[in-house]
């Protein structure tokens, strides 16, 4: 059965760079982590308190089941990956399957997102989101200079303010607006 699969795999044109055999294999790590998650579930399930009234199947049973399934799945998947089975990376309209992974973009987005989460309650959602928007858009444009960030920032700020006004003033969603915007719109 593996021969057939390998022949299919061999026909696949242009294996994405990150998944070529020989290079660092992330999926192996993922499979091992899944098995580790299963072990954690199995161990920690034993610590769940069982109320005295519980008669047969208590709150520990399902965690044990899920933990066992995770260990099994993770182990089997790790084995298959070791034997050369590779999952095809996702397609998408805007995804270039042959492009090398741009780790810098991923890192910038992750950091910008955490920063905006922490800033929301300080400077308000619109400004926090505008900064995140600017960082993400500028990175994706491929030019990381202050000048190139002006336009994305203004776009982000406009989007943030318009969305905030719609959701807070018209739909009554609780969303901190920041001092300036809340003052300016207090007459609504």
């Amino acid at each position: 059965m593996n021969e057939a699969e390998e022949s299919v795999a061999a026909e696949t044109p242009a294996t994405p760079v990150a998944q070529r055999p020989g290079s660092f294999n992330g999926e192996l790590v993922a499979a091992v982590l899944l098995a580790a998650l299963g072990v954690y579930l199995l161990v920690d399930a034993g610590a769940i308190a069982i109320p005295g009234s519980s008669n047969t199947v208590g709150p520990r049973f399902f965690p044990y089941a899920v933990g066992g399934l995770s260990v099994l799945t993770g182990a089997l998947l790790a084995l298959r990956v070791l034997r050369g089975d590779r999952g095809p990376a996702d397609d998408g309209e805007d995804v270039d399957p042959d492009a090398p992974t741009d780790w810098r973009a991923v890192a910038v987005i992750a950091v910008a997102f955490v920063a905006h989460a922490l800033l929301i309650n300080v400077v308000g959602w619109p400004l926090a989101v505008a900064l995140m928007f600017a960082a993400v858009a500028t990175t994706l444009q491929g030019r990381l200079t202050p000048v190139a960030a002006v336009r994305p920032f203004l776009v982000g700020l406009t989007v943030g303010c318009v969305v905030w006004i719609i959701f807070v003033k018209a739909l009554n969603v609780a969303l901190p607006g920041g001092i300036v915007l809340e003052f300016l719109t207090s007459w609504f």
Binding site: I120, V129, M132, A137, L140, P152
Partner: peptide
Amino acid sequence: RPYLYAGILTFASLGSFA
């Protein structure tokens, strides 16, 4: 596309924070 994906993250933030 830079604006599109920045916008998707903006609305993801809105939806989860709300």
